[in-house]
Write a protein that binds this DNA or RNA. Sequence first.
DNA 1: ATCGGTACCTGCACGC
DNA 2: TGCGTGCAGGTACCGA
Length: 265
Amino acid sequence: MPELPEVETVARSIAPLVGRRIVAAEFRGLRVLRGGDPDAMAASLQGRRIDSIRRYGKFILVSLRGGGYLTIHLGMTGKLLLGGPSGKHTHAILTLDRGGVLLYDDSRQFGRLQYSTEFPPRIEKLGPEPLEVPFETFADALVRRKTRIKALLLNQDFLRGIGNIYADEALFRAGIHPLAMASRIRGERARCLHRAIAEVLREAIAAGGSSISDYVDAQGRKGFFQFSHRVYQRTGEPCVTCGTAIRRVLVAQRSSHFCPRCQKR
DNA sequence: ATCGGTACCTGCACGC
DNA sequence: TGCGTGCAGGTACCGA
């Protein structure tokens, strides 16, 4: 499901858990623990109070009182759900005080849950937040890279949180072809892309994200930004600006949707 | 140090 | 009805 706007929506929807205590933790699917020991992890979480819940790109970081972190990444199909019945793809169940339950569901198991005593190094290494990065930082990083702009936007060490949907949507709004070389985007075009990224992410957050297949927030609510997609998964449909059929190409092994007339290399 | 390609999973839509 | 194929919001890891 989840890119920055979806993860932001999920993080906000579990914000009421701040201040609550984890009474018990149970882990089923071990794949999402990535080799972590389920019993040790349960023991580390049990009895701990949640101090804060923060999003870093597509990661959710749950800080525990007295030190320690639970890092959650939703992968492609991960869901956090407040209450509700557990199912075939439920991999973790956190029981909270005052009767709360938080489930982690993930059919493809590309997501992961990790406990660490230190701030996670992977999060440390991420690029800046796309909604906060100053233009100069963004533009400087662009010219250094020897890759296609679409591949670069998907690279979490460049900017954190952009995925396939919002990369395509931002490039369309900026009028830039997904195969354009990053280092050749300068001046006004770079400024335009910087603005388009922030704009599309803000609009998507306001819409509660994009519900492509079954994405929902922790309260089971769907987003509705999918109705505002201009190119993503609109192959063959007319461009909203010029009417030309939207095309699909592979860039870095990912489907990329663009208007061949509006978006220049 | 960076880059592109592949592996990791399950489920669904499609054509035959 | 069933089977094979291709596709899907993700990252990690490998070799070049």
